[in-house]
Design a protein around this nucleic acid. Structure first.
Lengths: 167, 167
DNA sequence: GCATTATAGTTAGCTTCCTAATTTTTAGTA
DNA sequence: TACTAAAAATTAGGAAGCTAACTATAATGC
């Protein structure tokens, strides 16, 4: 994810416009600010999780397991849900297993498959983290009121529909 | 950066709410959607850049150099502007130098310092990429009108002010 | 003038992500 | 039944990020 600290101002973009006249300055500013703020929020979340000895990728896997009734899932399903490759999921699960937060159970019916189970320690880890996380998130989002929140979701949905533009 | 494909719906969040009553469901949905859309935009940008044999980190360095009047800067300054560590910048510059897009010039006045210069090939690379990039960005952002754009920037600014919440 | 401190950059070792190739097992078909 | 397909997971190799430690050079201060 792009981590831009020094976003271009109007002056810089006007300089670029002389070399690249197709630039729409407002479009660029909005796009970069969106990516920039999201990136900073993500880094903030990282910092928060690191205090609990967690990282975003691993933490998200724990949450996905917590969603399941028996706290079990499979690497493929987890990869799909979290939007990473199965290879990446293998690495995340390696880390979580090393820390005892999940365990792998070979499926005896189909030996290609592995069941992933959230351990007691994994549940405990989430119980430590989530209340604090939800409380901070509530504070963060309290900065924007109901109308602003709805407008934000609306804009995000429109951008999501336009994602194919990069194809 | 969190890459969530399977965002929680209301039903899942209500399940979590029974275990973690502090959850503000709207706050969580807005936050995750913001990070999710930003992440997808970032991946779209990656895909686009890959077609030009570029990656986000390296591309951003080229742009920062293009901003400068003589196309020159220093590793420290570039690291600061792009929000990565100096160690990471060393790696990015290694890659760019290997491809001939930048070159390193030792500063004879202060031999600790290195000047980084955008080569002709580096300029050419940007000239290949930027018009297409700006044109697509214009299309992407055309989905949102003036008022929506201003509301978005407003919300982003408020969230940015609240970043310390994760500290 | 020389010892200490600060600065710029790199190196080393780790994590998390990727794609592509490989292994093992199951399913489908001729 | 045996051969081929498909599927699940892992491994291999690479990029981009981090922190911490190191090297070389410059600046400071007694």
């Amino acid at each position: 994810m792009l981590q831009l600290k020094d976003l271009p101002d109007k002056a810089i973009l006007e300089k670029f416009a002389s070399r690249y006249p197709e630039v729409d300055i407002n479009a660029v500013m909005q796009f970069l600010h969106l990516l920039g703020v999201a990136s900073e929020l993500s880094l903030g979340l990282d910092k928060f999780l690191r205090r609990h000895d967690l990282l975003q990728g691993r933490w998200w896997v724990l949450i996905l397991l917590m969603r399941e009734d028996n706290f079990m899932s499979s690497p493929s399903k987890l990869a799909e849900q979290s939007g990473v490759s199965r290879a990446t999921m293998t690495g995340l699960l390696d880390g979580l297993a090393r820390e005892g937060l999940i365990k792998r159970i070979v499926d005896e019916k189909d030996k290609r498959q592995t069941q992933i189970k959230l351990t007691k320690q994994g549940q405990q880890k989430l119980d430590d983290v989530m209340p604090d996380y939800y409380q901070r998130l509530g504070q963060l989002m309290s900065a924007i009121d109901k109308e602003e929140g709805e407008a934000l979701m609306n804009v995000l949905a429109k951008l999501k529909q336009n994602l194919t533009i990069f194809d």
